[in-house]
Design a binder for these strands. Structure first.
Length: 193
DNA sequence: ACTCCGATGGTCT
DNA sequence: GACCATCGGAGTG
């Protein structure tokens, strides 16, 4: 993709996120994540890897043991983000899916940076383009997501996912990464290549 | 290419 | 006190 123009009129809406989590995780592949920072910088990247965490029958999901202070955002109506800290070091970003009270979300695991790359490099404190948005911790850091962004809307002017034209990416489905419970579920989605 | 492992802290039993 | 939805560097083949 040579030129990409962020356009809020093409943002995915609440009905997109309120659907079944696995479907949302799959459909997010190939779409464009857009964030406008307070300083005016705009970051855009293509979503290339996601994982679904379900509200039922999924022991790996943070919601598996019910609502708590940490996972409360997961139990909101789809269309907001859920941010948590992992291993005491990294933050991870999820997009909450489904209807209110369910407790499900899609983890953003990998992006292909499109614009705002200088800002992402600065936020990541690296000069490595190759791994800039590779892995959930790096996705969060490159986009400047912090704990205070928990519960923020993913359908607002300064944070949204944009529809793409002629978007029929070839998608591969595998087991999820780094989990020990419910490992058999094929809930990781990655774009081919 | 791989495997191993330390860093570091919130959450839950 | 154990367990993590991780990352990157060191060591090995």
């Amino acid at each position: 993709m040579s030129v990409f123009i962020p356009d809020f009129k093409k943002a995915l809406n609440k009905n997109f996120y309120k659907r079944d989590t696995e479907t949302v995780a799959r459909d997010l592949i190939g779409k464009i994540l857009i964030r406008k920072l307070g300083n005016g910088d705009t970051l855009t990247a293509r979503i290339i890897e996601t994982e679904a965490y379900l509200s039922e029958g999924d022991l790996a999901s943070h919601s598996a043991n019910g609502k708590s202070k940490r996972n409360a955002a997961m139990f909101e109506e789809g269309g907001i983000i859920y941010i948590y800290k992992i291993y005491g070091i990294h933050h991870c970003v999820n997009i909450v899916t489904g209807t209110a009270g369910k407790g499900c979300a899609v983890l953003l695991r990998g992006l292909e940076p499109l614009s705002g790359i200088e800002t992402m490099l600065r936020l990541r404190e690296t000069n490595q383009i190759k791994s800039l948005c590779k892995g959930p911790g790096n996705v969060a850091k490159a986009f400047g997501f912090k704990p205070e962004d928990n519960f923020k809307s993913i359908i607002g002017e300064n944070l949204f996912v944009q529809e793409t034209e002629n978007n029929i990416p070839e998608i591969i489905c595998t087991k999820r990464i780094g989990i020990t419970k419910s490992p058999e579920h094929l809930l990781r989605f990655i774009i081919k290549n």
